[in-house]
């Protein structure tokens, strides 16, 4: 494993990672949800989430991270693709062509009057695909001997 470059024992990095990780992930969620109105969206959100996991990979090693996050990233990507396609097919139910989106104001108990767009569902699919794809690639390359 000495050549993978993913395994380093650095206490400072590990400690910082533990704190920063959550901030980065929350920031990525923020970017994702803000995406429709401010810079951000599925692509960037997904990339930053995977960036956070990559940070984890660098601070610890592949095996540890796999134990903490036992996720099959190929499935995550497939799941995202499924959401994206379903959000497109969903528009058939309303008798409009594939991938037609709409938006409107919805009243949600805690948040109050919220502006929602169905495109967000599609964007969620994008988010998952990006996370899944990036992590699949990095993890498989990182695991090779």
């Amino acid at each position: 494993m000495k050549k993978t470059g993913l395994k380093t024992n650095d206490l400072i990095l590990q400690t910082i990672t533990k704190i920063v990780l959550f901030i980065v992930i929350i920031f990525s969620f923020h970017l994702f949800f803000a995406g429709h109105n401010a810079p951000g969206g599925g692509f960037i959100g997904g990339l930053i989430t995977s960036g956070a996991i990559v940070l984890l990979l660098i601070a610890f090693d592949v095996k540890t991270v796999k134990a903490i996050l036992p996720i099959n990233y190929v499935k995550v990507a497939a799941f995202g693709l499924l959401i994206a396609i379903l959000s497109g097919i969903g528009s058939f139910l309303f008798g409009v062509p594939f991938l037609s989106h709409t938006h409107g104001h919805v009243h949600i108990p805690v948040l109050g009057d919220t502006h929602l767009a169905t495109a967000v569902i599609f964007d969620l699919g994008v988010y998952f695909v990006v996370v899944g794809v990036t992590m699949t690639i990095i993890q498989t390359i990182g695991e090779t001997e």
Binding site: H36, N37, G41, G88, H101, H103, A117, A119, D123, V126
Partner: peptide
């Protein structure tokens, strides 16, 4: 039509969703 201020994102997920 797209319900978003971020035009780039609206193009990505809505206008050019395909």
């Amino acid at each position: 039509l797209g319900g978003g201020y971020n035009v780039v994102n609206v193009i990505l997920v809505d206008f050019r969703g395909f």
